[in-house]
């Protein structure tokens, strides 16, 4: 189910989104001395009921993309259409309504719940903002939600610090589904959790999707986790999308060298598999987003880079791999399963 074949309308369409942060100096008289190009010309579609993964290493702009779509940060330019309406042109009241349609699950379950509020108040807060559930029914509804996310309904009057990380994340999930949203943006929802709890939370998210039919924009840096939940994937590097495709295309017909490097770093849980031999070690650090390299942003660390890579910025398009990739020399010499792609396909 690659994007080209879909005939239904996307529920969220992000077009040429840019977010530049000014770098300023001075205390009273601030002077802009540069910009951080956190998100640069990012476009993608999210379809109803689908999970779209947004992956990339720290600092590549995944979270900024999400925050901008939610208007927690104002975009520099671009458009984002939710059911055809541009989020960036919405008035205050439209924006408030939007925020019952798109909700968020945050990365850090210790920081995302107000420590002074009871679990019941935390989960019920969306209703006191958007209405929808009469005051007298809120306690029952809260308890139902706690049950949905696998917590004891008697916990409504306890405080967040009395819960473990995984349990807190479940509270965050209950809050996110309280208003029956169409999209949930999951900003690295499991990366702060114990490995043992990660799988539980991912499974809970999958169950919720089955039950409520929400779309997920799933942000993560752990490709192994993402694989379980997403239908399609956008790989980001330094503010740009470098590869896009469904789970099979990206994991088994990896075309962009950066994605290949990322996938080669996914540990294989088999001690005898250590001689796989195709781990790609990237040289150097991520270049500064204040001053990104010309042309392809990955060229400074790419083993395939040639002169052409420093010229025009490679466009995200299908270059004969069956899915869009922003690279002049896409190749399939590596796949996630470690075996040659011809045999897996």
């Amino acid at each position: 189910m690659s994007s080209e074949q879909r005939t239904d309308e996307p529920i969220l369409r992000v077009v040429n989104l840019k977010k530049y942060f000014p770098v300023t100096r001075g205390i009273i008289f601030k002077k802009t001395i540069g910009t951080v190009q956190a998100v640069d010309d990012v476009s993608f579609d999210l379809y109803p009921g689908e999970s779209l993964g947004l992956v990339g290493e720290s600092g590549c702009g995944k979270t900024t993309t999400a925050r901008t779509i939610l208007r927690l940060d104002e975009p520099t330019s671009g458009e984002a259409y939710f059911q055809g309406r541009d989020i960036f042109k919405m008035s205050r009241s439209e924006l408030r309504d939007l925020r019952s349609e798109i909700t968020v699950i945050f990365q850090d379950p210790y920081a995302s719940l107000n420590p002074r509020m009871t679990v019941g108040d935390i989960i019920a807060e969306p209703w006191s903002i958007h209405g929808g559930v009469p005051r007298k029914d809120r306690k029952n509804k809260t308890q139902e939600l706690l049950e949905v996310v696998g917590l004891n309904p008697n916990n409504v009057s306890r405080y967040p610090h009395q819960f473990s990380g995984g349990q807190r994340q479940r509270i965050g999930i209950a809050r996110a589904i309280a208003v029956d949203p169409k999209i949930i943006i999951c900003d690295e929802p499991v990366s702060a959790l114990d490995v043992s709890v990660q799988a539980q939370v991912v499974n809970l998210l999958e169950d919720i999707q089955k039950e409520f039919g929400v779309s997920y924009l799933f942000i993560a840096h752990d490709l192994a986790i993402v694989r379980h939940i997403v239908d399609r994937l956008e790989v980001m590097y330094l503010g740009k999308i470098v590869e896009e495709g469904d789970e099979f295309q990206v994991y088994d017909h990896t075309a962009h060298p950066y994605t290949q490097a990322l996938l080669s770093a996914v540990p294989i849980p088999d001690p005898r598999a250590k001689n796989r031999g195709n781990r790609i070690m990237l040289e150097g650090d991520v270049p500064s987003p204040t001053n990104p390299p010309s042309g392809c942003r990955f060229r400074t660390r790419c083993w395939k880079a040639q002169d052409v890579c420093a010229g025009e910025i490679p466009v995200l398009e299908d270059r004969g791999q069956g899915h869009p990739v922003a690279c002049y020399f896409p190749g399939v010499e590596f796949s996630a399963s470690g075996a040659p792609p011809t045999t897996t396909a």
Binding site: R99, V104, L113, I129
Partner: peptide
């Protein structure tokens, strides 16, 4: 994050200050 969470939830500034920040 819980202040961002409240904003993302559509809470007004007054509500955020009174319910989330000041306590």
């Amino acid at each position: 994050d819980y202040v961002d969470a409240a904003r993302a939830m559509g809470a007004s500034n007054t509500r955020i200050i009174v319910r989330h920040v000041l306590p």
